[in-house]
């Protein structure tokens, strides 16, 4: 588990004088430009295009990572790393090869899964396991908080099931897009989601009344 106290975030590649504050960029009049166009402009040296791409995609990637990892600092790392990979491949990007947002989700998803696996390896090496990842974690949560209960239940799911649920129900991606992100078939995504929902429902159903949900 990475500690919550951490140094101020700095750019990956170099520590710019005065932190990571960039000089003001020239305004760009292509707010409606598609992602591939913006990326091509960035590759041609237009940094305002990078700012638009960041504003458009970084929040989504961060939300995905935050919900997958539940750790602010790790979610920030994943987001920064995913965006950095985007900047690096900008000049090689082939328009039409994939949706840029889907590509970013895929990179972020893989980074999240890597980190979740690493967590488990560290935990299995004798580090103290997080309480809410332990079996029966839900029973330990006594707070009247639906979000906390759902998060705890989500953490009991296998990584890919959790990822499918987050993408489908929180990021509101379509099943074909999730299939592309997970590099699998739509049928496999439906199967993943079905199993995940059954598991979540089984875990959360006993707490419905306690958390104020009426039967329906």
């Amino acid at each position: 588990m990475i500690g919550s106290a951490r140094a101020p975030r700095r750019c990956h590649l170099t520590a710019l004088p005065g932190g990571c504050i960039l000089p003001p960029m020239t305004p760009i009049r292509t707010e409606d430009a598609d992602d591939a166009t913006l990326l091509a402009r960035y590759a041609a040296g237009d940094r305002a295009a990078a700012r638009l791409l960041t504003a458009r995609h970084a929040p989504r990637v961060f939300a995905l990572a935050r919900r997958m990892l539940r750790e602010q600092a790790e979610a920030e790392d994943v987001t920064q790393e995913a965006m950095l990979r985007l900047w690096r491949i900008a000049s090689d990007w082939q328009p039409g090869q994939a949706q840029l947002g889907t590509w970013l989700y895929r990179v972020a998803s893989n980074l999240c899964i890597d980190r979740l696996r690493r967590r488990r390896e560290i935990a299995s090496d004798g580090m103290p396991e997080q309480a809410d990842e332990a079996p029966g974690a839900l029973a330990q949560i006594e707070a009247d908080d639906r979000a906390v209960a759902l998060r705890a239940a989500l953490e009991t799911l296998p990584d890919r099931q959790r990822l499918a649920v987050v993408l489908r129900h929180f990021e509101e991606r379509s099943n074909p897009e999730i299939a592309e992100i997970l590099d699998t078939s739509v049928e496999a995504v439906e199967s993943l989601l079905g199993r995940a929902r059954r598991e979540l429902a089984a875990r959360l159903a006993p707490r419905r009344e306690a958390l104020g949900f009426s039967d329906g």
């Binding site: 940094r47 960041t54 920064q80 965006m83 639906r146 979000a147 129900h169 929180f170």
Partner: peptide, 28 residues
């Protein structure tokens, strides 16, 4: 349950966005 969790904000901090843009500048 999903709605409850969706309502939670998941906005990236400003420092993160600045760092991402700094990375973009360095790569460029």
């Amino acid at each position: 349950w999903f709605a409850a969790l969706r309502a939670e904000p998941a906005e990236p901090p400003l420092a993160l966005l600045s760092a991402i843009l700094a990375d973009a500048a360095v790569v460029d």
